[in-house]
């Protein structure tokens, strides 16, 4: 097998991984700060795709790309304010149950509103076609997805590391009691982070819609992958999730090349391997409150 073929599959894996990163990053943020395992993350992803379908008909794909994640984030704010925030101080099992129920209710609601049938969602005209670099072939649309993902990841990083908001978030992740003792209200921060997290899920949903279609069960199918990536990357680690997402993409691509039946199983094998060597994930840090 020529080296070129392997390189091509690795490069393609990075592209595929980029949208996993966006999805998993949202999940990781919500968990690190609120301690909530958001089983409804897939539902927000699906909601992003459905909202995009509605917006696209009126304002085109780029309108959908901008507005749909905001819409999902807004819904996230409502849910966090009304329900989720009551559960932060309770047994973590309650929040888990709540998001589990929310995921089921959301999927059935999508079915009721938009029907059980998938909705046609094509690649926008402006992004159709392929780019050839030597023997390599790239779809324009996937390159655009890579660009948007990169901007989203960088934006989040800047927000968390270069702003005073980010400082509070990072302090809150480590020691919420101390932050409160210093007179800083964590509750609006928690709301904002939940909105940001589900907004990222919505963004991933918009980006995947033209590739995999829009249908009610799409969220359930993708959720496990997002969890696996967060675990591989290590809880609480920003770059860990990014590397893990890309790594899962590459490993999956290479598995398709050599042994396709194991393609979906490859990420679980990777997770087992990583956890054997590094029980906290690739870049997981020690969290006093989760130990």
């Amino acid at each position: 097998m020529p080296l070129f073929v392997i390189l091509e599959h690795m490069a393609n894996g990075l592209l595929v991984g980029s949208y996993y990163v966006v999805l998993a990053l949202g999940l990781s943020l919500i968990f690190s700060l609120g301690g909530v395992v958001n089983l409804a993350h897939g539902a927000f992803y699906a909601l992003g795709a459905y909202l995009a379908w509605e917006v696209q008909r009126r304002l085109g794909f780029f309108g959908a790309l901008a507005l749909s994640p905001l819409g999902v984030a807004a819904i996230g704010v409502v849910i966090e304010r009304l329900c989720l925030r009551r559960l932060y101080r309770e047994d973590p099992g309650l929040a888990l149950l709540f998001t589990f129920g929310l995921a089921m209710a959301a999927e059935q609601s999508l079915r009721l509103v938009w029907g059980a049938t998938g909705l046609p969602f094509g690649i926008p005209e402006a992004l159709r076609g392929q780019i050839f670099l030597g023997d390599f072939i790239y779809s324009r649309y996937r390159l655009a997805v890579l660009a948007v993902s990169a901007v989203a990841v960088l934006g989040c990083w800047l927000l968390l590391n270069k702003t005073s908001f980010g400082l509070v978030v990072r302090a809150g992740t480590r020691d919420p009691e101390m932050v409160r003792a210093l007179g800083i209200a964590l509750s609006p921060v928690l709301t904002a982070i939940f909105a940001l997290g589900v907004g990222l899920a919505g963004l991933a949903g918009v980006m995947s819609a033209p590739l995999a279609g829009v249908q009610p069960a799409m969220g359930t199918e993708i959720l496990t992958a997002a969890f696996v990536i967060v675990v591989i990357g290590g809880l609480g680690s920003f770059w860990g999730v990014v590397y893990a997402g890309l790594l899962v993409g590459v490993v999956r691509g290479l598995t398709v090349l050599f042994y396709p039946p194991a393609a979906e199983a490859s990420m679980y094998a990777l997770m087992v391997l990583v956890l054997l060597v590094r029980p906290r994930g690739l870049m997981g840090e020690r969290f006093e409150r989760f130990e």
């Binding site: 599959h9 595929v16 779809s139 995947s208 590739l211 199918e221 691509g253 398709v256 393609a263 979906e264």
Partner: peptide, 20 residues
Amino acid sequence: NDMVPTNTPDYSAYILKIRQ
């Protein structure tokens, strides 16, 4: 003949193989 796991969201790797 590639055996594809069900609910595969991404086929780009398979398509690259076909192209080769």
